[in-house]
C-alpha cells in the first residue's frame, strides 16, 4: 500500500460519510441524484462478488468492501425513506433526476463483454463495475449543471469522490514502477472517470468565475 492509494481510499470513505452526514444533519435530499446513488449500489455489488469466493486479499480489503456495499445501500434506503416522510422533496428529487441511465448500463455491459480478463461471470461483472463506475457520477453532474445551484455539501461530496479517483492514478504509476503491477482495465476506466470529473471541475470554475451559486469545496 502506498500513500496515494491510502489517501485515495480515505477520500472515497470521506465522500460517503459526507453524503450520509449531510442527509442526516440537514434533513435534506435536495440536489442529490438518486440514480447515481443507485448505480453505486449496483457497482459495489457486482465488483465485490469475490467476497463470496475464496480470493481473500486482506482484512483491510474485506472491511472496506463491506463498508462500500453497506454504506451505498444505506444511502439508497435513506433516500427511499424520504418518499414517505418528505413526499414533496422526494418528488422534486426524482423529477430533477432526468439523466438516462439505461445508456450507461447498456454501454458498460457492452464494454464489459468486449474488454475483460476472462470470459467468466465474475470477471465480466468486475469489468462491468469499473466501466459503470467511470460514468456513474454523470446523473449527479447533469443535475448539478442543469440546476446551476447546489448545496455546498453536495459539492464537498463530489469533490472528495473526484479526489479519490485522481489519487488512484499516481497510485497506479507507483504500483507499475515499484511492484511491476499493471491492471489495464482499472487504469483505462480510472482515466475515463477522472476525465468525467474534470467536467465537474470545469463547471465548478465556470460557475465560480461567473458568480454562480456554487459553494467552495
Amino acid at each position: 500500500m502506498n500513500l496515494f492509494r491510502i489517501f485515495g481510499d480515505l477520500s472515497h470513505l470521506a465522500s460517503i460519510l459526507i453524503l450520509i452526514r449531510t442527509i442526516q444533519t440537514t434533513d435534506t435530499i435536495d440536489g442529490i441524484s438518486f440514480k447515481t446513488q443507485g448505480l453505486y449500489v449496483l457497482i459495489f455489488l457486482t465488483r465485490y462478488l469475490d467476497l463470496l469466493t475464496f480470493s481473500y486479499v486482506s482484512f483491510y480489503n474485506t472491511i472496506m468492501k463491506l463498508f462500500f456495499i453497506g454504506s451505498s445501500l444505506y444511502i439508497v434506503i435513506l433516500l427511499q425513506r424520504s418518499r414517505k416522510t418528505k413526499p414533496i422533496a422526494y418528488k422534486e428529487m426524482i423529477m430533477a433526476d432526468t439523466f438516462k441511465v439505461q445508456y450507461l448500463l447498456g454501454g458498460s455491459l457492452v464494454m464489459a463483454l468486449l474488454f475483460n480478463y476472462k470470459f467468466s461471470l465474475l470477471e465480466i461483472l468486475w469489468s462491468f463495475s469499473v466501466w459503470l463506475e467511470s460514468v456513474a457520477i454523470l446523473p449527479q453532474l447533469f443535475m448539478l449543471s442543469k440546476s446551476g445551484k447546489a448545496k455546498s455539501l453536495t459539492i464537498h461530496y463530489i469533490f472528495a469522490l473526484g479526489l479519490y479517483r485522481t489519487l488512484y492514478i499516481p497510485n497506479w504509476f507507483w504500483r507499475y514502477w515499484v511492484e511491476g503491477k499493471f491492471d489495464k482495465l482499472a487504469v483505462v476506466t480510472g482515466i475515463v472517470q477522472t476525465l468525467v470529473y474534470s467536467d465537474f471541475f470545469y463547471v465548478y470554475y465556470k460557475k465560480v468565475l461567473t458568480g454562480g451559486g456554487l459553494g467552495l469545496p
Binding site: 492509494r5 481510499d9 472515497h12 465488483r47 469475490d50 480470493s55 486479499v57 486482506s58 480489503n61 472496506m64 468492501k65 462500500f68 480478463y117 476472462k118 470477471e123 468486475w126 488512484y168 497510485n171 503491477k181 491492471d183 482499472a186
Partner: peptide, 10 residues
C-alpha cells in the same frame, strides 16, 4: 495475455 490479475484494489 496471462490470467486475470488479482483485483486487490477497491
Amino acid at each position: 495475455s496471462t490470467s486475470a490479475p488479482s483485483h486487490d484494489e477497491l
